[in-house]
Design a protein around this nucleic acid. Structure first.
Lengths: 122, 122
DNA sequence: CTAAAACCTGACGTTGACGTGAGATGCAAG
DNA sequence: CTTGCATCTCACGTCAACGTCAGGTTTTAG
């Protein structure tokens, strides 16, 4: 596949795909003229990369994780790293839930301001 | 209170507090010599600001929300804005949950690689 | 064969929430 | 008074994941 095709299939920009290659996340073959050619599997790989980015992993961590996903190989300390990332995600989720609750309170107060809002103690 | 004291109490940096003032999120009185003086309530205000930042709201939105929290005043369109932010947070939570599940799969595969991981189809 | 579309490599710009000095001033203690 | 820490105001630096523009090349459709 050519880069534009991969971009259309995955919804990420051409620039992003080149960036992934620069970061050693997404290798590519080159045509005689120097253009990138990808196997069909690249689409799934890009989707995985996107998911890991969405989880807040930096490209450095994604670079560590990707070979493992495809090979099942465990590099020393990788498992610890993964579980640390998992913990960070969980913490982030907790924070967001708390923030959403806080926002819900704000919304409720906005709809129908209670007396204590007019005389705040905080 | 002086700025360093607020920083210690809240755990945010002095620089951040000055940034909040710059963004009209955290007002301050000034001493004769020009130093910032805060009321004790500033500590909770800073904590609220941090929570909203943690929720992913940009300072512009926090600036909109803060007066409402303390006064119960509803500016036109604010409620829509709040609910849009709430939706954004919920979406982010969903993404993170999906990403965490994906990571769990990766972790499981790392612990005990299944056959298909050892013979990837790319 | 030609024109257009797609692609290439640099390289600088963006955004947000601060970090990090530099150099000057305020303020409380001895 | 003076030492010395806290604080002040610029103002440039940072980091990540790309966006965007420039100027040139490759590939494909007709």
């Amino acid at each position: 596949m050519r880069i534009g095709e991969v971009a259309r299939e995955t919804g990420v920009s051409v620039r992003a795909l080149r960036y992934y290659e620069e970061q050693d996340l997404l290798p590519s073959e080159r045509s005689a003229g120097g253009q990138r050619r990808y196997p069909a599997s690249a689409v799934d790989r890009v989707r995985l990369i996107q998911q890991l980015f969405a989880a807040g992993l930096p490209s450095r961590s994604v670079r560590e994780v990707l070979p493992c996903v495809y090979s099942g190989t465990v590099t020393p300390g990788l498992l610890d790293h993964l579980e640390a990332e998992r913990a960070r995600i969980s913490e982030r989720i907790t924070d967001l839930l708390a923030a959403r609750d806080r926002l819900d309170t704000v919304i409720a107060n906005t709809r129908n301001p209670p007396a204590e809002c007019l005389h705040p103690r905080d």
